[in-house]
Structures are given as structure tokens and as C-alpha cells.
Write a protein that binds this DNA or RNA. Structure first.
Lengths: 231, 231
DNA sequence: GACCAACCTGCACAGAACCTTCACGAGTCG
DNA sequence: CGACTCGTGAAGGTTCTGTGCAGGTTGGTC
């Protein structure tokens, strides 16, 4: 049981340097650990690396849309998102909430208000998490069961130990059972490398995965990619 | 504007009135139509009557076990099930998954989490249904079935292995069943060679394809090209 | 700081899978 | 019956994948 209230880690995603910096400074003054990101890819990468407890996200971003960032973040791991929107556009806000944002703030906003919202959202989420206890989202493909909540995998009711990357790879394949996924796609989703050129990393992990869950459960489609057998 | 998605119908099976009511109220607030049931027989009857899109099912029930309910529901008609379990028992969870549950949540859980799970599961199931049913990925010509998602080909329910080029060629022909496609056209679409001059490559692959799916399924149109028989 | 274990990545090589071309015979059409 | 088109088999070359291994990173321990 952790005794001290753990320090909360926030991710601030905002392309305007002045706003990003002032928000960051203020939140740090409030005692949060803050990581900054200035565009979509950076945000996704930072989130993957730091696993923040909450994300403050501008919807208007270079790279790709803030909504897209939100979607990707949620897809990877549910994380509370406080959306910043310059437009006072109902549709935009609704879209944000639909892709997993939990609250929003329209520009221009005061820092005091932002801080209050962040605190409120964290409180809300943490209370829910506390009540939630253990839970999971389960994927299944044939005799393979993947629990993304506990990150455990069983094959024919036998538990198997997978490394983090192996697990993510399997989860990615299992999200679309039977479907063939290209190496590029896997590199983008599992490794967050939008650019994939001549690396054999995927193959190496596929090999490891096969050794652990059974070689014939991962199908090679020559010249295309890999697929999880459903059977 | 996104057109309204059809209203989803849920069945909540839980014997504890306080929990059942709060869960139901919250889900209704989220826009779902909700039916309540308090025991096993009631759950089965309600499912038969309302044909819900998803069932939230407590495993500990009077009457008979939640697992039994789950089994009966699945037997009647496959329906996504989100299991609620008080016990933090691995075996119990696995048993649930084995009888057709798709996800689980251990008590005590947060309503926020529950809502998220319900939405995620519905999304997943609907996506799967789309992939399975839609002809977006599945092409058909007579007894030949081509799944471009899994890249699998079936001839009279027998699976056939095709090489990448053979598959693309077949898919190209199957995209316009019965239609005659010129070699130029095939070279352009399958091989991405806009310029086609006196190569016999197409013929070679047609030959291979014929050997695998049956010679008479690919018709030669002298001086023009090839066509997939529909029959 | 040194050390160790677990893990990720990339490379080189071998073998498998695959594609293309060629030559020649058979088929088709006017 | 020519001229052209198509089928066929084999050969050669190319691309792709499986695999073992080494170097590097990370995180934890003494």
C-alpha cells in the first residue's frame, strides 16, 4: 500500500509556446510533474513514455488533430483528458467528449480556472479508480485470452509470461483477430514509429511470441504481414 | 452531423437492488434503454423478450449461477456479456470467459468505469460484426470466397493457399465478377505497371491461379483478357 | 559505482517463397 | 492455312522471412 499521495504527472499538449509554458509553469507551481508536448506525434510519444495521470490537450494542433490524439491516447490506455478549445463550437466539444475527453475549457481561460478543473478531474477520476479495483478489458482469439487490464495472457488456461513489447504486439494483433496487419502498421501502433524501413524488430518479437503462445497461432502472410489465428 | 446511432438496449442482471438501480440509472443517463432483472430465470426471460444488445451480468445470483445464465444466453443467441464479479478469483473469471463472457469488472467498481466498459464492448462487437458481415472485406464469385482482410481464399469451403500476387490478381478479378479485364488493366492494378509490353507474367499467374482454384473458373477471352466466372 | 538480469534492437546469413522470363507447342481467328 | 494469341514447363534471379547472436538500454541490487 502506498502511503504518500503520489505526485501526479500531467501532460500538457499545446502548440503555442507562450500558452504551453505559462500553463506548465503554473501547474508545476501547484506541485504536479509536467511534461510538455507541442504536436500530435509528440503528445502520443510523451504519453507512451510518461504514462501521465491526466492530459491537458489543445484540440488545434499541427501534425494531426487533437481529437485524433485523444482517440489514440484512449485506445492505448484510458487516461483523463481536459480539452482546450479555441472555438466555442458545440460540435467540436461534443466530438471531443465522444472520443474520450472528460472535460473542456474554452479559450481564453484563466489559469486559476484551469488549475481548478485539473484538480477536480483528478479527484473525480481517482475516486472512480479507487472504487473500480481490479478490472480488465479482455480480448480473445481461439484459446488465447488477453487481459489488457492485468496485462496477463493465458493459452489454453495456462498463464504465459510475455515481455511488454510482446504483450502489446499480441494485443494489437488480437484487436483484429484473423486480420492481416502489415509490419508498418504494427510499427506504428505498437512501437509508435510512423516511419518503418527495413528493420527486423517486428520479426524478432514475432518469433518470441510464437515461442510462447505456439508457433501456429501467428500466421505469416508473405509479403504482407502477420495475423493472429482465430480458429 | 453524425446521424444518431440506433439506441442500444441493455439488460442489467443484479440481485442487489441498490446496485442494480444505480447502474441502471447511470446507463439510462448515458442514453441506453435498460431492462432490469434480479435473478437467473428473470434474466433469461428478459433476454428472450427484449433481445438486448449487451448484458451486464452479476455472477452471484439467486436461482442459478450467473455462469449458467451466461451459458443459456449464449446458447440461445450470441450476445456480448460484461460480467460483474465480487470474487477476485482468477478461476471464476476464466470460467466466465469460457462460457461466453467478453469482459469483466470486479466489485466494487466505479460507474464511470462500467460505462466505459459497456461502450468499449459495444464498439468492439459492432466492429467485429461489421468486419464479419460487410462485403467490404469479403468478395465472392460462385463458390470462391475472398477475404481481403484475412487474405484467405476458400473454394467450396476448402481453404486454398495463394501467393501474394495470385491473391491480388484474384481479388482484382473478383472485384468485377464476370467482367473481362485486359492484361494492361491487370498489370496496372495488380502490378502497378502503367506500361505493359509483351510480358507473359499475367499468363503465368493465371495458370497458377487456375491450378489452385479450378481451371474453369477463369475464362480466357481471346485477344482481350481474362474474367472470373460467376456461375 | 559496479554488477546483474531482463529486455529491445539490429544485423548477417541461410533457406524458403516467390516472380519473371523464355522457348516452344497448342489453340484460335479471319 | 498463316498470323497471332495463349498454355505450359522449367530455369534463374529476386525478394522475403526465420533465426542466432551481439550490442545496447533499462532497472534494480549489493
Amino acid at each position: 500500500m502506498p502511503l504518500d499521495p503520489p505526485r501526479r504527472h500531467l501532460l500538457v499538449v499545446e502548440d503555442e509556446p507562450a500558452i504551453n509554458d505559462s500553463v506548465t509553469r503554473r501547474l508545476e507551481a501547484e506541485g504536479y510533474a509536467v511534461t510538455q508536448a507541442w504536436d500530435g506525434p509528440g503528445a502520443v510519444a510523451a504519453a507512451a513514455e510518461h504514462a501521465p495521470d491526466l492530459v491537458v490537450l489543445d484540440v488545434m494542433l499541427p501534425g494531426y488533430d487533437g481529437l485524433e490524439v485523444c482517440r489514440r491516447l484512449q485506445q492505448r490506455r484510458p487516461v483523463p483528458v481536459l480539452m482546450l478549445t479555441a472555438r466555442d463550437d458545440e460540435a467540436d466539444i461534443l466530438a471531443g467528449l465522444a472520443v474520450g475527453a472528460d472535460d473542456y475549457l474554452t479559450k481564453p481561460f484563466g489559469l486559476r480556472e484551469l488549475v481548478a478543473r485539473v484538480a477536480a478531474l483528478l479527484r473525480r477520476v481517482e475516486r472512480a479508480a479507487e472504487l473500480a479495483g481490479r478490472s480488465a478489458t479482455v480480448l480473445q482469439a481461439g484459446a488465447v485470452t488477453i487481459d489488457t487490464g492485468t496485462r496477463r495472457v493465458t493459452v489454453e488456461d495456462q498463464q504465459v509470461h510475455l515481455t511488454p513489447t510482446e504483450f502489446d504486439l499480441l494485443a494489437c494483433l488480437a484487436a483484429a483477430p484473423g486480420q492481416v496487419l502489415a509490419r508498418d502498421r504494427l510499427l506504428a501502433e505498437v512501437w509508435d514509429w510512423p516511419d518503418a524501413t527495413g528493420t527486423r524488430t517486428v520479426d524478432s518479437h514475432i518469433k518470441a511470441l510464437r515461442a510462447k503462445i505456439g508457433a501456429d497461432r501467428v500466421r505469416t502472410v508473405h509479403g504482407v504481414g502477420y495475423a493472429l489465428e482465430v480458429r
